[in-house]
Design a protein around this nucleic acid. Sequence first.
DNA 1: CGCATATTCAACCATTCGGTTGAGGTACGC
DNA 2: GCGTACCTCAACCGAATGGTTGAATATGCG
Lengths: 109, 109
Amino acid sequence: MSHPLDAAFSALADPTRRAILTMLLEDDMAVSDVAEPFDMSLAAISKHLGILSRAGLITQEQRGRVKWCKLEPDALRDASIWMQSFGQFEAVNLDAFERFLASELSDDR
Amino acid sequence: MSHPLDAAFSALADPTRRAILTMLLEDDMAVSDVAEPFDMSLAAISKHLGILSRAGLITQEQRGRVKWCKLEPDALRDASIWMQSFGQFEAVNLDAFERFLASELSDDR
DNA sequence: CGCATATTCAACCATTCGGTTGAGGTACGC
DNA sequence: GCGTACCTCAACCGAATGGTTGAATATGCG
């Protein structure tokens, strides 16, 4: 997995990881708080966070015995820019955007 | 892989598949023409095209004995829109965009 | 100090992925 | 109609993924 886009896109490919990113959009979180809503072991979430971190999508800062996770939009921007190069779709249509977000939020997890 | 974004992002995670999409940006292509520049069996490329197709990123139309592959920007737009929801980065910076494209094109893949 | 909390490590497991090869199945050119 | 060009299928392979459990490692609290 040499190219940074490989890491970014394959990190984004997992719904658990996308959900984590969405949670981090609200605020920085400790690892166990990230894990809380998921029906999955803490170790599994820890691995997911490692993947997001290696992809550059988040950063983690150890403070005391808790490790804080913070969204890092730079890698996301690179991926977004790559996709914009397929600019055959016009600048984001806000109506479509809101409809999309609504359907996204009505999903499980 | 239930969510459509899963398919789109994991399809985008492979450099061969991103290269194929870039090629299709130029023009529609037959399967064997897509395969030509890659150091890989035709069957492997055929699989990649199947993945791109199932992800909705391309469509394939059989015409005679050749199957034409066509970029399908809709799924790409959905993925792009999802990323825009992390709108902490401002509207695409064109300078960064061009620098990015330059570095992307100088890559092997 | 001694215990609880927060997180990772290590080993393991089933499944998927990305590739190969070889054998088809169709459509076209002569 | 025969051969060839185009593409996929099927079986296989090694490596990576996404999860588990149990033990280990820090750090903070009383």
